[in-house]
Design a protein around this nucleic acid. Structure first.
Length: 522
DNA sequence: TAGGTAATAT
DNA sequence: TATATTACCT
């Protein structure tokens, strides 16, 4: 007699959220009353019971339909001992729990020796019966190929368990991250804020690595069934330790962020040179890195400006900066980077004026022309297609880069915006527009110093009034040399602006041909 | 010894 | 990949 209930599909195991409910149990017992009682108990636990009262049928079921069962319960009596032992020999693919009223040690030993997972004496304890699923898990992880069908039968269980454990790890990691976010509250200074952000980034990277590692571990578990559960548990434990270590590193990040604001902060190699160099062990002879905070960099730049870029040498900069803990070598290194950056960025700025990408871009990319025009902003309205237009209308929009190239050091930009980024040295990095040539590249969006201005609105550090004054002076005496920082408008931009104003003819100067255009074009 | 720069490390 | 440090040359 067989009472098979609905059988789960294998893929459902991955989503077996109410495990062990639905565990499929083969019940082999030739005593109708006893089996009925056992079956009732099992079904109360929402296990799915298939009852066989005939040993031949039972053996046939496990050999032909082993995939239908997770566990077998065999009732051994004095009458069916031989059949039972035979069944045990045949049913090595499944965890078999023996139940019996026979309490003789020899029977118990023989059953266990033949592969029974457990020997339960009757009357059955409900808890014992409920926990038979443990043998399923154990079998799933502990069978090492000695049973041909085990893998196909219990692998879904194994996968489910692995997924479950992995999920738990992820939950734990999320929980620790949340706790850390709560710990890192309201830094009192921009530096701290940045440090925390950076630390947090490091942690995120670390966590990403950990997660990847966990994924790898998990994959290994699934892909390599030959590993025994000890190895797998080790891997899972390792992951857990890694997750725990994140907590520690986060705490470190928090404390280190709190401690460093005044003098130069040195980082790296678990060594803090700041004020505790005597504690540095001989193993840790390696020099620490200088954390070039915006404040430190500002001081550096100030010193360089004071000396002049040509006269700025490390020793002099070091004297001017007056920062404890900083060495000449540190300065030299930073100066090298600073110079390289200037070399890299300044020609680009020049180039950006000389080679407008397309005509539509010119309409607001062009340099302003020296003519008595109304305030420049009126002529260069915010293009509605500017990428930050919709999302960041609170920013002041500067329609073109005005008359000076902003000092590199003034725009050390770190804070990122959804569509606008900048490198560490403040050079705006724009999103790619190459895909749509009809959309002109926008002007640099408003930016800020490394930590942002208070209102996020000051793109250029030079006061607008100063710019206007310089422009007015230049326009008043167009024959005079342009003040430092101002460059004359391009011929193209002058012509296009004149054209826009309705002036279509301009006299041709023999000494200054108008690029490729003839006056007729205008 | 200091400055500059390339190579290397993080 | 970016940045800092180190090594090496002048």
């Amino acid at each position: 007699m067989v009472c098979c209930q609905e059988i789960r599909e294998d893929h459902e195991f991955r989503l077996w959220k109410d495990f062990p409910k639905g565990l499929r149990v083969l019940l082999l017992c030739n005593d109708a009353d006893s089996s009925s009682q056992t079956q009732t108990k099992l079904e109360q636990m929402e296990y799915i019971v298939s009852w066989y009262d005939n040993f031949d049928e039972g053996q046939k079921a496990i050999s032909e339909k082993s995939e239908l069962f997770h566990v077998a319960i065999l009732e051994v009596t004095t009458d069916n001992c031989q059949h039972s032992f035979k069944f045990l020999e045949k049913a090595r693919d499944l965890p078999v729990i023996v139940i019996s009223s026979d309490s003789s040690l020899s029977t118990m030993m023989k059953c266990i020796a033949l592969g029974a997972a457990e020997f339960l004496q009757k009357p059955l304890s409900e808890d014992k019966l409920r926990n038979i699923w443990q043998h399923v898990i154990h079998k799933a992880f502990n069978s090492r190929g000695e049973c041909n069908n085990t893998l196909s039968t219990l692998n879904p269980i194994k996968e489910m368990v692995v997924s479950l454990l992995h999920l738990n790890q992820e939950e734990k990691a999320e929980r620790s991250e949340h706790e850390i976010h709560e710990k890192l509250t309201s830094p009192s200074t921009p530096q701290l804020e940045s440090k925390l952000r950076l630390s947090s980034n490091n942690i995120e990277e670390s966590e990403e690595r950990n997660n990847k590692s966990a994924d790898k571990n998990c994959n290994d578990l699934v892909v390599a069934p030959s590993k025994n559960d000890n190895e797998q548990v080790k891997e899972l434990t390792k992951h857990e330790e890694e997750v725990n270590s994140i907590e520690i590193s986060k705490s470190d990040a928090c404390s280190s962020a709190k401690e460093g604001h005044g003098n130069v902060r040195l980082t790296g190699s678990k060594m803090k040179k700041n004020g505790s160099s005597s504690q540095a062990t001989k193993d840790n002879k390696k020099k620490s890195k200088v954390d070039w905070t915006p404040d430190l960099h500002k001081r550096f730049v100030k010193a360089v400006e004071q000396l002049g870029i040509d006269q700025a040498i490390p020793s002099k900069i070091l004297d001017l900066m007056k920062v404890e803990g900083l060495t000449r070598h540190n300065i030299a290194s930073h100066l090298q980077k600073y110079r390289m950056h200037r070399r890299h960025i300044l020609p680009k700025k020049e180039e950006s004026w000389k080679t407008p990408q397309d005509t539509s871009a010119r309409s607001y990319m062009q340099r302003p022309i020296l003519a008595p025009y109304p305030p420049l902003q009126q002529y260069y309205p915010v293009p509605p297609f500017a990428p930050w237009y919709h999302h960041h209308q609170s920013y002041y929009y500067r329609p073109f880069q005005p008359w000076h190239v902003p000092a590199v050091e003034e725009t050390w930009t770190w804070k990122s915006y959804p569509q606008v980024h900048a490198d560490t040295w403040g050079c705006p990095v724009f999103p790619p527009y190459a895909h749509n040539h009809n959309v002109p590249s926008p002007m640099p969006p408003p930016t800020c110093n490394k930590y942002g201005t208070e209102d996020g609105s000051n793109y250029f550090s030079v006061d607008e009034e100063v710019i206007d004054k310089v422009v007015r002076e230049a326009m008043a005496e167009p024959w005079a040399p342009l003040p430092l920082g101002l460059t004359p408008p391009s011929t193209e931009s002058v012509l296009s602006e004149l054209h826009r104003l309705g002036i279509h003819t301009v006299p041709v100067l023999p000494t200054a041909p108008l690029s490729n255009h003839t006056p007729r074009d205008y």
